[in-house]
Measured scan of single mutants.
Amino acid sequence: EVTIKANLIFANGSTQTAEFKGTFEKATSEAYAYADTLKKDNGEYTVDVADKGYTLNIKFAG
């Protein structure tokens, strides 16, 4: 089991951190699915992958 950390960075400057656990593939998939649910209210997003994929910096356009 691994932990994927998602740093969520919103257009208004606020930030939030979420963690997803499971296999690497499952946790990564859940992180992207979570970002997709936030897209409606926060706009499109870009992802900067860090720490060999264990950290995702997800920035929303607003």
Rank of each mutant, 00 (worst) to 15 (best):
V2S: 07
V2E: 14
I4F: 02
K5C: 05
A6T: 09
A6Y: 01
N7D: 03
N7A: 06
N7Q: 10
L8Q: 01
L8M: 12
L8Y: 12
L8C: 04
I9A: 09
I9T: 11
I9G: 05
I9P: 00
F10G: 02
A11T: 13
A11H: 15
A11G: 10
N12M: 08
N12P: 04
G13F: 08
G13A: 05
S14C: 05
S14Q: 14
T15M: 12
Q16I: 09
T17H: 14
A18M: 15
A18Y: 14
A18R: 15
A18I: 15
E19D: 08
E19Q: 11
E19I: 13
E19S: 13
F20Q: 01
K21V: 14
K21N: 14
K21D: 06
K21R: 12
G22S: 05
T23E: 15
T23L: 08
F24K: 09
F24S: 04
F24Y: 12
E25V: 07
A27P: 01
T28E: 05
T28N: 07
S29Y: 09
S29A: 13
E30P: 00
E30D: 14
A31K: 00
A31W: 02
Y34I: 04
Y34E: 02
Y34V: 05
Y34L: 11
Y34G: 01
D36F: 04
D36Q: 09
T37K: 08
T37P: 02
L38S: 02
K39W: 05
K39Q: 08
K39N: 03
K40R: 09
K40G: 12
K40W: 08
K40F: 09
K40M: 12
D41H: 13
D41G: 10
N42W: 15
N42M: 13
N42C: 04
G43C: 03
Y45G: 01
Y45L: 02
T46S: 12
T46N: 08
V47D: 02
V49F: 12
A50L: 14
A50R: 14
D51M: 06
K52D: 09
K52C: 06
G53E: 03
Y54S: 04
Y54K: 07
Y54M: 06
T55S: 07
N57M: 11
I58H: 00
K59L: 08
K59V: 11
A61M: 12
A61V: 09
G62V: 09
